[in-house]
Design a protein around this nucleic acid. Structure first.
Lengths: 268, 268
DNA sequence: ACGTCTGTTGCATCTTCTGCAACGTTCATT
DNA sequence: AATGAACGTTGCAGAAGATGCAACAGACGT
């Protein structure tokens, strides 16, 4: 809507690919160098972009701290965290929490597996939207026309032989997930990794987040993982209850559950 | 430098305080509602801002994934991580890695304590710049005039009785840190928490990052923590060596050490 | 010492952003 | 049920600010 801002913001994903110099940025934006310079300077003043010693630009630290604050504003995260930890204590596997926003699904919390062999993942990373259990859960809740629209604009990369191959298959899978109230990813992303997930619902009954337990084949088989399903669902339901119930949030700052984790003020 | 972009970017820290509606944003920016609307729309298109169901705006998920990518581009982080883990295995305490950028010092990696009593901190959170051991290490390396300039524009919040009280004291402390090549924070931020840190240097000999070990009083006394100093310094030096040495980075994508942690492609 | 490459500045032009005022909705009030 | 307020949204004319150009400066390698 605003050309200047639009151009400036386009620089960010560009730099996310790696550091770039002025000329490169100008080229990619399709503008004159002097224009790119001014945009970069503005981004720099706000700390979103950093100029490293070789003069090239890369994403700045302010971006990281902003993202940090963004996550701390997510109520679901605060509420869910202790439940995720407890679940991890019970089963020992990696536990993820994810939300859906625009056309991304991303992990917003994670409790590491206590087994030596762990899967790789990172908070903030967008998930493989066509195969991940949490993605299926979140998309399955969308109204039918939107679900269809989304499904059709996705790519369907074949990570493994068991990846969802195309839109019709994906829509069928969503239908199934919607009916049964839980989802799996059995080697659809990484051959050797399986997940079981369940939805977390808000007060309006819509799916607000999704959680999953993941474990590599070498630790437990898919069948063994599936025996955890009741536990996962109970946990998800517990979070749903707390999230949709009278959330004890005194709005602007949430001193209650925040102080629960950090006894004094603004923690290190 | 560019007014429009400047205004748009000012919205981000504003929303970091918590969700806000259009009127509020316009007020805080000092512009007309329609102007604010256009800016927000542009931010929205880029996913940096999200519109929640009550129509209020908050920071968007794209911000989180961008920050993620920003961190993954930091070579020091990749290199340091295994060393941090090893140090944690040896001493059991919380290990932090921090860098300095513009006027912030922030944690970019962390390995959790293996003791039940843990300190609270989070990757991406700016540190208390006047007291944290890592902050002292990073600032101590700046050229004298800049150090002085920075020191004078800081606030000196008295977190505890042992917090650095003012600029002269801080400058003296930096001098000391610079000479001895390591730093501490003994209850300067949280009464009961102590830290010991050491600098990580790049090929040019300048301090590129800093690491520290933190532990609460109830686990080990300050004196006991100080006995870890040689270990911490050895670790920092090992990282320095690897970082300043011939870093095996085939630039654009870093397939080498990335693939070391994730056997196949783009992990979950 | 020369040439090339990259970043930087000042300026005139014109695109694009801004604020206004009017409209459409939604929600609370009477 | 009707009225009013508050908020978000749109089109438009004027004005302010962004753009590209061309010329300069500085670094680097030859």
């Amino acid at each position: 809507m605003s050309q200047t801002v639009d151009r400036a913001l386009s620089i960010l994903p560009l730099l996310a690919e790696g550091p770039a110099d002025l000329g490169r940025v100008a080229d990619r934006l399709g503008v004159h160098k002097s224009t790119a310079l001014r945009l970069l300077r503005t981004l720099h003043e706000h700390g979103l972009v950093y100029r490293q010693s070789d003069q090239r630009y890369r994403l700045g630290a302010r971006l990281i701290s902003l993202a940090q604050e963004a996550m701390e504003n997510l109520d679901i995260r605060e509420i869910a965290h202790p439940h995720l930890v407890r679940l991890n204590e019970q089963c020992g596997h990696t536990v993820h929490l994810a939300v859906h926003e625009e056309d991304e699904v991303l992990y917003i919390d994670k409790v590491e597996s206590r087994y030596p062999v762990r899967m790789y993942s990172r908070i903030g990373k967008p998930v493989a939207i066509t195969v991940a259990a949490v993605a299926k859960l979140l998309l399955a809740d969308l109204p039918e026309p939107e679900r269809r629209a989304r499904a059709e604009q996705f790519d369907y990369p074949l990570y493994t032989a068991r990846s969802t191959p195309n839109a019709p298959a994906f829509l069928r899978e969503l239908e199934k997930v919607r009916d049964q109230g839980w989802a799996t990813d059995l080697g659809g992303h990484e051959e050797s990794i399986n997940c079981v997930g369940a939805p977390i619902r808000g007060a309006d009954g819509r799916v607000a987040a999704a959680m999953s337990v993941s474990a590599p084949n070498v630790v437990v088989t898919a069948d063994e993982l599936l025996t955890l399903l009741p536990l996962v669902r109970r946990t998800a339901d517990a979070i749903s209850g707390e999230y949709s119930g009278r959330t004890p949030v005194t709005d602007p700052a949430h001193p209650d559950h925040r102080s629960a984790r950090t006894p004094t003020k603004d923690p290190v």
